[in-house]
Every structure is written in C-alpha cells, then in structure tokens.
C-alpha cells in the first residue's frame, strides 16, 4: 500500500474516533452533578437571567436534543458558544491557542534533545557514575509533581533571587526577550517530567541495541564508538521513543492545565479547567475535540515516522 492511501485510510479512521470522543465527553459532562446555570449565577440568581441563559443555550431541551443539536453544529464547523464568556468557542480557543501551542512546542524542543543526549550518555556509560547520575536525574524528574516544581521555581528563581518574573505571558512575536524570560520557568516545569520519561526510554532502548549482534559486528570491524552509538544503535533505539513522543501529547495537555494556572498563562489549559469547573459544555467539548485531533494526528505522524526510520516497516 502506498503512503498516500495509507494516510487517507488513517484519516478516515479518525472520524469514528472523534465521534466517540464527542459522545463520551458530552455524556460525561452531563453526568457531572450540578446545573451550569446555577453554578454560573450562584445563590439567589436573577430568574430573568437564569431563564434567558437556559432558553438561549437550550439547557431546557431533552439531553438527546441537545446532543443532536451539538453534533449538527459541529458538522457545520460551529463549535457553539460559551455561556460564561458569551462568545463563540472557536474565537475563545483561537485567542488561547497561541500560549498553549508555544508552551507545548517549546517543552518538546527542550525535552526531546535533552532526553536523547542524557539517554545516550547513560547507555554509553552503563553502570558507571555517569549512568547512575542520569538515572537519578530521570527518577527525580518523573517523581517530581509539576505543581510542586512550578512553585519551587517561583520561590527560588522569582522570589529569592529575583532572576525572572513569576508569572504572565507575552507572545514571542510581540516581545521575544520578555517572552523568553516569562517562558523559562513554565517550559522547564512542563519539560522536566517529559524529559525524564523520554530519557529513561532512550537509555533502556539504547542499552538493548548496544547488546545486539550487529553492534558487536560493527565494533569488530573497528567502526568508531561514536559512530556506532549515533549512526547505528540510536536510529534503531528511536522507534520506541517516537511512540512515546506521540502519546505524550496528552501528558502535555494535562500538564499545561496546571502550569498555565500557576504561571498565569492565558492558554487553553486554563480555559479548559475553568470551563470544566462551571460546566461550560461547549468549551470543554471544543477543547477536547481539538486535543483529540492533535493527538490523533500525532499518532499518525508517529506511524509514518516508523517507516522512515525503519524501512522494513511497510504501510499495510
């Protein structure tokens, strides 16, 4: 099967998955206790305002009608309106997308090369001091909750030494220097656990490859160790790493919720969390859908990358 047909087939397969995601999110959101209008308006609400919200957003309709309405709108490319922000979900998401994509992208950019370098270093010095050090770094990174790390960074870097601002966001396109200052701590927080996991994967995968017969053969032929490491074993060791990189998109989303909240970054993670608290259904479904698409595309790209890295893998 050619790559074009393979991609097309995978894209078609995404449709039922997205349908399932929408349905599941819709059902789970409506299964949560509480009435969104009551939560939004609080105690002693204005009855007029409550009635207006209920009618305008169709909360008085049977659940199946709300579901069909929502699906119909989605099929027309309309993500609906947020009843708390009183604006289209799509424009809300567009407004918040920049900070989240920047944060996640930079986290990947930091985590991936660092993880590969440390993983290769650890594997090359298996059971020696350097390996133990990299394992300790990895274990600490995985074990450290990102909210704790974020608070410690703020306490030490922003409060004690006053090296960087504690919170806020400026687009890199608007003010690159200020943006960089503001993004160092959030990116470090989000990238740490990700880097630790990828580093451990790289290390174990590399150790396995370095024990393989073809590596022994390469060494016997007198190929320099550096070339053995980077040209031969790393390329094969990257396969499991690529799988994890694709799947880690969901990890980044959950991490961005906490990081955006603590560092006051106006991104989609914060919007998702705030909308979940007030049961703003349209926003939660919209963001879930966006991340589902992102995740599925990530998985597809991962699969395509397999074939590029290992020509033995075929599109069938």
């Amino acid at each position: 099967m050619g790559m074009g047909r393979y991609v097309l087939r995978r894209l078609v397969q995404i449709v039922p998955v997205l349908f399932g995601v929408i349905t599941l999110t819709f059902v789970l959101m409506h299964a949560l206790p509480g009435d969104p209008v009551k939560i939004y308006l609080g105690l002693e609400p204005s009855q007029e305002l409550a009635d207006e919200l209920i009618e305008h957003y169709g909360f008085d309709q049977p659940l199946y009608v709300q579901y069909v309405d929502h699906l119909t709108r989605l099929l027309q490319g309309d993500l609906g309106r947020s009843f708390t922000h009183r604006q289209p979900v799509s424009s809300l998401m567009l407004e918040r997308m920049g900070p989240t994509v920047t944060l996640m992208g930079l986290s990947y950019l930091v985590a991936l090369p660092t993880a590969i370098a440390l993983g290769v270093y650890g594997a090359a010095r298996h059971n020696r001091a350097g390996d133990h050090a990299s394992r300790i770094v990895g274990l600490a990174g995985i074990s450290t909750p990102n909210f704790w790390l974020a608070l410690m960074l703020i306490y030490v870097v922003a409060y004690e030494f006053q090296l960087l601002p504690a919170s806020g966001y400026v687009s890199p396109l608007e003010n690159p220097v200020q943006s960089a200052k503001l993004l160092v701590m959030p990116v470090a927080t989000l990238a740490t656990a990700q880097m630790a996991l990828l580093m451990r994967m790289t290390r174990s995968s590399m150790i396995e490859e370095l024990r393989a017969d073809y590596i022994e053969t390469a060494r016997a032929y007198g190929i320099p160790e550096r070339r053995v490491l980077y040209r031969h074993s790393l390329r094969n060791a990257l396969l499991p790493l690529i799988t994890i990189v694709g799947l880690q998109l969901s990890f980044l989303l959950s991490g961005s919720v906490i990081v955006e909240e603590i560092f006051a970054i106006p991104g989609m993670g914060r919007l998702f969390f705030d909308s979940l608290v007030v049961l703003d259904y349209s926003v939660v479904i919209g963001i879930t859908l966006f991340f589902a698409v992102l995740f599925l595309i990530g998985v597809l790209l991962t699969d395509l990358a397999y074939a590029y890295i290992d020509p033995r893998i075929r599109y069938d």
Partner: peptide, 18 residues
C-alpha cells in the same frame, strides 16, 4: 489589572515589583 489565578503567585509578584 493582571489576571493571576493563584494568590501566592500574586504575592510574589507584589514583593518583587511585578
């Protein structure tokens, strides 16, 4: 007005001049 969800972070911003 800067929107800072966490009061503790707002406090750090206050003490550091943010």
């Amino acid at each position: 007005y800067r929107i800072i969800p966490e009061a503790e972070v707002g406090y750090v911003e206050l003490t550091t001049g943010g």
